[in-house]
Amino acid sequence: MTLSKFNLPDLGNTPSTSEIITRHLREAIVAGHFAEDEPIRQDDIARQFNVSKIPVREALKRLEAEGLVMFQRNRGAMVTRISEAELAQMFEVRMLLEDKVLRLAIPNMTEETFARAESICREFIGEDDVGRWAELNWQLHACLYEPAQRPFLVGLIRSVHDKLERYLRMQMSLSAGKERADHEHREILAACRAGDVERAVKLLDEHIAGVCKTLFEFLPSSH
C-alpha cells in the first residue's frame, strides 16, 4: 500500500528529542538561567520534558562538546565556568581568526553583501530582546565573513562566539553595548564597502578589544 496520497510529515527533517532538549538547555544556559558551576540534574530535566534520561544525557554531551557543560565525578553535569584568563584568550583567538577571514572576504564582497549587512544592522538596533541581539550580532559578522569562502574557518569563529554568548548578552544588556556595537558595526561595514582592508581590520580589532574590556568591567568580582 502506498501512502503518497496522504499528507505525511517529513520525519527526516524533524529534530530528535535530544536535539530539542539541547536547544532549550543551550538557550537556558546562555540566558543565565543556570549559574556557573550549578549542577544540571538529569532527573529534573527528564521529568520536565517527560522523557527518559537517555536523550537528556545525549543533550548534555552535545553541550559538553560546545564547552557549555562539563562533567565532574560525583557531581554530574554542571555549567562550565570560564575564567577571566580563558575569556581573554578567547577574545585573542577571535582577533586572530576574524582578522584573517575579513582580509580574505573584503575583495569578494558585493552589493548584495552590503545590503544584507545593512538590513541586519537595522534589525539589530530596533530589537529589544537581548537574546536576539546576540544572534543578530553573529549574523552580521557571518555576513561579512562568508565571502571569504572559508566555511571551516567561519565555523571555528562561530564556536568561539557560542562559548562567549552568555557573556556578550550580559555585556550588551548591562552597558550601552548595543548602541556602541551598532556604531562600530557600521564603521566596519563602511570600510569594507570602501575596500579599505587595513582600516576595516583595525576597526574590527578595536571592536573586539572594546567588547572584552567592557565585559571585564561588568563581570562579577567573584568570577
Rank of each mutant, 00 (worst) to 15 (best):
L96Y: 05
E92F: 09
E92W: 08
I106G: 11
P107K: 13
P107T: 11
R103F: 07
L104W: 01
G76N: 00
A88L: 05
M95I: 15
I82C: 07
R94C: 05
F91E: 05
M95V: 15
A105T: 06
F91I: 07
N108G: 05
K100P: 00
M78P: 02
V93Y: 04
A85L: 02
R81S: 14
E84L: 06
A77I: 00
V79A: 08
E92R: 10
V79P: 02
E98G: 08
Q89E: 14
I106Y: 03
E98Y: 13
L96V: 11
A105V: 04
L96M: 12
R103A: 12
Q89T: 12
L87E: 08
M90Y: 06
E84M: 04
E98L: 09
R81C: 06
S83M: 07
N108D: 03
E92A: 10
T80V: 14
A85I: 05
V93T: 11
L96F: 07
V79E: 03
I106N: 09
T80R: 15
P107R: 13
E98H: 12
D99V: 00
V93I: 09
F91D: 05
E86A: 14
A77D: 13
G76V: 01
R103T: 08
R103Y: 08
A105L: 07
L102R: 04
I82S: 06
T80P: 03
P107A: 12
A85P: 01
R94I: 02
K100I: 01
E92M: 07
I106P: 10
L97Y: 05
G76C: 03
